[in-house]
Simulated scan of single mutants.
Amino acid sequence: MISLRSLSAGLSLFAVAHMSSIASGGGGMEPTGSPGPPLRRLLRLASVPGSEQHRLNDLLLLSPEGPRSQNDHVVFFPGDIQNFQQEMALQPEAAPWQCWSLERVAVILGSRFPGRHIWVVRASHMYLHKFSCYQNFVESNLFGAPEHSPDYGALRHLRGLLGHGMERAGLPNPLPPLGGAAPLPQGFSLTLVGFSKGCVVLNQIVYELAGARVEPELKLFLESISDMYWLDGGHPGGGETWVTDKRALGELAACGVSVHAHVTPYEVRDPMRAWVGREHRRFIKTLEEHNTCITHKLHFEDEPASIENHFRVIKEF
Results as ranks from 00 to 15, higher is better:
11 L>K: 14
15 A>K: 15
21 S>L: 10
31 P>E: 05
31 P>L: 01
34 S>V: 12
35 P>D: 05
36 G>Q: 14
45 L>G: 09
47 S>T: 04
51 S>P: 01
54 H>F: 14
55 R>G: 00
59 L>A: 11
62 L>R: 08
67 P>I: 11
70 Q>G: 15
70 Q>L: 12
72 D>N: 14
80 D>H: 15
85 Q>F: 15
90 L>T: 06
97 W>P: 01
100 W>Q: 07
103 E>N: 08
105 V>Y: 06
105 V>R: 02
108 I>K: 13
109 L>Y: 10
109 L>H: 05
109 L>S: 11
109 L>I: 08
110 G>F: 13
114 P>S: 07
124 S>Y: 12
126 M>Q: 14
127 Y>C: 13
134 Y>K: 09
143 F>W: 09
145 A>Y: 04
145 A>T: 08
149 S>R: 13
150 P>S: 07
150 P>W: 06
158 L>C: 00
160 G>A: 04
164 H>G: 03
167 E>A: 11
171 L>T: 05
175 L>C: 03
179 G>N: 04
180 G>R: 00
185 P>A: 08
186 Q>G: 09
187 G>L: 11
189 S>E: 02
191 T>I: 15
198 G>Q: 03
206 V>Q: 03
209 L>V: 00
211 G>R: 05
215 E>Y: 08
217 E>Y: 02
219 K>H: 10
234 G>A: 08
236 P>W: 11
244 T>F: 02
249 L>V: 06
260 H>W: 14
264 T>E: 00
267 E>M: 15
278 R>Y: 07
283 F>I: 03
285 K>Y: 05
289 E>P: 02
294 I>L: 15
300 F>Y: 15
301 E>D: 13
306 S>W: 01
308 E>V: 15
309 N>F: 11
311 F>S: 03
316 E>I: 10
